Structure formats: C-alpha cells, structure tokens
Simulated scan of single mutants.
Amino acid sequence: MFTKKRSIIVGITVIFLAVSIFAAPRSAVACSCAEHGSVLETMKRSDTVFEGTAISVKSIASDLFRSSGSRVKASFKVNEVWKGHVAPQIEVLTAGSEDSCGYAFKEGERYLVYARATGSSLEANLCSGTLLHHEAEEHIAQLGSGSLPPQSSSEAQQKDDSFPRSIMIAGIAAVLAAAFLFALVKSRNRFKSKT
C-alpha cells in the first residue's frame, strides 16, 4: 500500500512537471515598438536629436538592486545637433536591458540619438529611433546639416584668452631678448674701454 501511494504521488508530480514545462509560455519579448515612421516624424517625436560618441556607459543602480529595468546613464561627446539645447557633453538615460526597451550603448561608438525629455533628463530607447552612426546615413542625409554644440564657457574663454596670452608671451620674450642684447653690448663696450 505504501508503494502504491508513493507511485501515485510520483506520477502526479511527473504529470504536473510535464504540464508546467509544455504549458509555460515561450520566451516573450517585453519590448515591442510601433514602426518608427519617417525621419521627420521621428524628429518631431523627439525633444533632442544629436550625433555623438559615447564616452561613458554606467548603470545607475548598485549591483545588489540591478534588474532589467534598472537605468543606465550614457555620456556623449556631441559632434552635431539637429534639435534641442545640447551641450558639448550630454547624458542620456535608458533602461538596462533590451527586454525593457533599453538601448545598449557602448563606449567608443558613435550614435545618432533621438531622445525625449523626462523631467530634467533625456531618455532614449529601442523605440526612439536611435541608431549607430554607420546605420544612420539615410537619417543624417535627410536631416541635412546640423549645428555644432555650443562651447562650454571654459573652452570659449581659453580660445578668447589664447590670442592675448600669446601676445603677452611674445612681448616678454622680446623684452628679455632686448635686455640681453643691451647687457651684451654694454659689457663689450666696457671690455673695449679697458683695453
């Protein structure tokens, strides 16, 4: 009797496992995007459009609390701007996984980024239209010429100060050279007067 009960329990367990394996849903893609539409439609949906190189890609969440929905911060060196107020360096947030529609930015890669403003930050995802630079030739051609990002105040000041500094350095060098020549001529004259 004990073996009969045991056989029934084992049989029910096997049936339960078989049903759960075959009835389990197949891997589903959590992120699905509607068609991007034309380049101009994609640009209209975006608050910011720029081309730049990812210089840093870091997860915002600590390792302990990281999940597919965790945020990733990508920092870019901006080369060209088509829309929005974009600094020479800018940060864009995205989800940490493609399952959550996160865009997998990689350091050193160039991108055409379509981003939306959410509060005080910019966000891009798989559905925003963002592309690797080498895949974005058609987009860039349709967007036309963009503008350069504004220089940071320190870069602008360095360029403004570089001309006066060079004049000042040249002036100091000329004064030192004149003083040296004057001292050399004076010492020659003393030497001649002694002989």
Rank of each mutant, 00 (worst) to 15 (best):
A124N: 07
S100Y: 03
T94H: 09
N79Y: 06
G108F: 04
K77L: 08
Y103G: 04
A87I: 01
V86M: 05
A117C: 00
W82A: 05
K77N: 06
Y114Q: 02
G102K: 12
A87W: 01
S120V: 11
L112K: 08
E123A: 06
Q89C: 00
N125P: 07
C101I: 10
E80D: 10
R116D: 12
F105W: 07
I90V: 15
V78W: 00
A117W: 05
S100D: 15
Y103F: 15
A115G: 08
C101S: 10
G84L: 13
L112N: 05
L112C: 08
L122V: 01
G84M: 12
H85A: 15
V78C: 05
V92M: 05
S120N: 14
E107V: 03
V92P: 00
L122R: 13
S100C: 05
F105R: 07
S120Q: 11
K77V: 01
V113S: 03
P88I: 02
A124Q: 05
S121N: 14
N79Q: 13
V78T: 11
N79K: 04
V92L: 09
R110Q: 15
H85C: 06
A124D: 02
A95R: 10
K77W: 00
V92F: 09
H85I: 12
W82T: 01
V86I: 14
A104W: 06
V92I: 13
E109N: 13
G119K: 09
S97P: 04
H85V: 13
G108P: 13
I90M: 07
K106R: 12
D99Y: 04
R116Q: 13
A104N: 12
F76V: 03
P88C: 04
K83D: 07
R110I: 03
L93K: 11
A104Q: 11
E91P: 00
E80T: 15
Y114L: 01
F76Y: 04
V81F: 02
S100M: 09
A124I: 11
V86N: 01
L93C: 03
A124G: 11
W82S: 05
A95F: 10
A117M: 14
A117S: 15
L93T: 14
V113M: 08
V92T: 01
P88S: 14
G108K: 09
K83R: 14
G96R: 12
V92D: 04
Y111D: 06
E109T: 13
G84F: 03
E80S: 11
S97Y: 04
I90H: 00
R116S: 14
Y114C: 00
A87G: 03
V81A: 08
S97V: 11
F105G: 04
A117F: 02
Y111Q: 08
V81T: 08
V92S: 06
L93Q: 12
A115W: 03
E123V: 15
A87D: 04
